[in-house]
Design a protein around this nucleic acid. Structure first.
Lengths: 248, 248
DNA sequence: GGTTGCACGATTGTCGAACAAGCGGGTATC
DNA sequence: GATACCCGCTTGTTCGACAATCGTGCAACC
């Protein structure tokens, strides 16, 4: 016997609004009706409407722009992901799980990006390369740059499903990468190896050699894991750090 | 000049609670303190607390069990995914994007599952096979069974990152698969081809032939796309149906 | 003794009215 | 024409209140 769940008004409000957005009755970019308006329309109190809106806000269907007023909008993949990553953290995901999927997704991204090969991508990657060279020379942190390098490739695929799938993995990868690059045993060699791999990848992109792109990307990710082992870090440790990459 | 965003009390409540859960101060399975308690603790009104809780609820950090009381819990990957899928729908994702990623993830899942090969998986898959044979004989719908087949493999990987990445893809794949299996041009042949592929996959699992597992899974997914083309459906159409698979 | 019924407290869901603060827009002023 | 000011609208928050429901303990009943 299924426990019957009686309808909550604020849930109804949430669903009604979401449906209106999906149906296009509320268009993205337009401001959401005021709380009092909605309250009147749905025949409930402003309080109830507000609770419904909170849910909507969390899902990314409305955003606050500029002033206080809420605007209808589309959820972006990188807004959905942080929640997912935190969920994974709670589940005590191991680095192995993360790495196994990252390997596939990064190679996949590289492959797709290569097949849509654009000059702009190569340019952007070259720019990233030279920034990284400079950063290494000055002993600066290169984690952000590495993340950016891979993001550039992923975005070049123009595949939103891939971007969505990749985002939580990236977020969790960040602390692992940081840990590795700061580790005494790998601090010296890792940045060089990393840069070297990136160079090969860019070169392969430029040569429009799809097979080489995939191969180098694969080597690159595998090498990362090797460094992890080499540093004496346990791949079956949980990826538990909660450092998050800066966003602009 | 960055627009300064003044702190909202309900957001603070949400964050405080989420942190308490992540820190383990609030343990999963335990009931959340009552609204009045929290209101007192945070020094805000019950209503403000409620708004914070709505957000928490949406994120999956609290669930309603049985009665009305809320219980602390862990978000599950299949609770996060529907939101992600809906977001993708809004972005008018094409079937091509979906398929490109699905191909990689399914092969990846097959690979990982094969390396952890367990007798239980093979048994479950065999069971699924015979159900599907029966369903085809009776002309019943096999979409659910196909989804279940692939989910069994994915779950056998015991990789939560993979499960999370895969879930939104699966949800969106569902309507596409349904469309194909109902299409007049492919209705007759597709189920047979699908079943045949599944048989090969199961056999490869049983033989502990990892390479064969990957190869057949790959063929299987590629064949799906071929059917899509054959039916005259445009792979660059948006995956816009909002049918959702039944959950038990 | 076990079950049923009931009263009571606790908790959630909803409502109503109110106010401070910030933003937008119109208006007066120079 | 530019600037300052004022006023209304909207949001965030508070206080107060009440119906519905759930859990529980207690009592009555078979």
């Amino acid at each position: 016997m299924k426990r019957l769940v009686l309808p909550k008004a604020y849930q109804a409000v949430h669903e009604a609004l979401e449906e209106a957005i999906l149906d296009g009755r509320l268009k993205t970019g337009e401001p959401l009706p005021t709380e009092t308006d909605l309250a009147g329309k749905f025949g409930v109190t402003r309080h109830t409407v507000r609770e419904g809106i909170r849910v909507l806000e969390q899902t990314g269907f409305v955003k606050r722009e500029a002033g206080r007023r809420l605007f209808v909008s589309l959820p972006r993949y990188d807004e959905l992901a942080p929640r997912a990553s935190r969920a994974l953290l709670m589940q005590k995901v191991t680095f192995r799980e993360l790495w196994e999927v990252a390997l596939q997704l990064e190679v996949c991204a590289a492959d797709l990006a290569a097949s849509r090969n654009s000059r702009k991508l190569v340019e952007a990657l070259r720019e990233n390369l030279s920034q990284m060279e400079a950063a290494i020379k000055r002993g600066r942190d290169i984690v952000e740059l590495d993340i950016a390098f891979h993001s550039l490739i992923a975005e070049a695929t123009e595949n939103r499903v891939l971007l969505l799938a990749r985002e939580p993995v990236t977020l969790l990868f960040y602390p692992a990468l940081k840990k590795l690059l700061k580790h005494p045993k790998t601090r010296e060699i890792s940045p060089q190896r990393l840069l070297e791999a990136h160079r090969h990848i860019v070169q392969a992109f430029q040569d429009r050699n799809n097979a080489a792109v995939k191969e180098w990307m694969s080597k690159h990710i595998i090498d990362f894991r090797r460094g992890y082992d080499f540093a004496g870090l346990d791949i079956d440790d949980i990826a538990d750090s909660r450092v998050e990459p800066a966003r602009k």
